[in-house]
Amino acid sequence: MLSVAEIINLLNSIPVGYKSPEDNCFNAANQMYIPEYKKLGVITVANELQDNLPEADENDLFCDVPGCQIAFENSASYQAHFYNVHRYLCSVCRRCLPTAHLLCLHILECHDSYFIIRAKRGDAMYSCFLGECKVKLPTPKQRREHCINKHKFPANYRFEQLCGKPYKRHTKKPSKSVEANEIVDDMDVVADIPNMK
C-alpha cells in the first residue's frame, strides 16, 4: 500500500484532464478486460422440428379476418401473417399497413380533406416514411427522392404501397396536366392487400 507522499509523487507523474475515448492510456486495459466483438453465425434445428409437426388438415389454423381465410400450418406463420397484413388496418377503406406510422400517413393522405387542400396549396405536408425522421415535403416525388438520398431506400422500392397507394407496374410518362392532378390521383383507395414490409 502506498503512503500519502508516494501517492502524491505518483499523481504528479500523471497529466490532469479530460481523456478522449481513443486515448492511448486506455489501450492496455481495453485489451486486458474488454473483449472485442466476435462475429458469430447461427445454426438452427428449427426446420427439423417443424418438419415433424403433424400434417395440416382442414381443422388447422385459418385467418378469421373477413375476406382473408388463408390457412396456416402453425401458429407462428399465422402470427406473422396477422402482424404483416392485419395489424394496422384502416377503418375507412380496410387497407392494411405494415406499421402504425404508415397507417397514420395513409389516413392523412387518403382520407383527410384538410390534408388534401393544404397539399394542393403547396404546403410541405408529406411526412417521411421513416417514423423517426420528422422531415415533411411538398410532393410525394420529393419525398421519394428524400427517402432514396437521405435514408438509402433502394430506388426500386415500392413507395406507392408504403402509405396505401397502388403499385403501378407500367406508368405512363406524365403530362403536365396529369402532374397537376397527381395528388388527387394518389388519394385513390385500393381494396387489395399489398405485400409490404
Binding site: 466476435k38 462475429k39 458469430l40 453465425g41 447461427v42 445454426i43 438452427t44 434445428v45 428449427a46 422440428l49 417443424q50 415433424n52 409437426l53 403433424p54 402453425n74 401458429s75 407462428a76
Partner: peptide, 24 residues
C-alpha cells in the same frame, strides 16, 4: 394446438446456437 405450442416454444429456446466461421 397445445402440443404445437410446446414444440414451438421448445424450438425457440433450444434450437439456436451461435458459432464463428469454421467452428461449427
Amino acid at each position: 394446438v397445445a402440443q404445437q405450442h410446446r414444440e414451438e416454444q421448445r424450438a425457440k429456446t433450444i434450437d439456436t446456437v451461435r458459432f464463428g466461421l469454421g467452428e461449427v
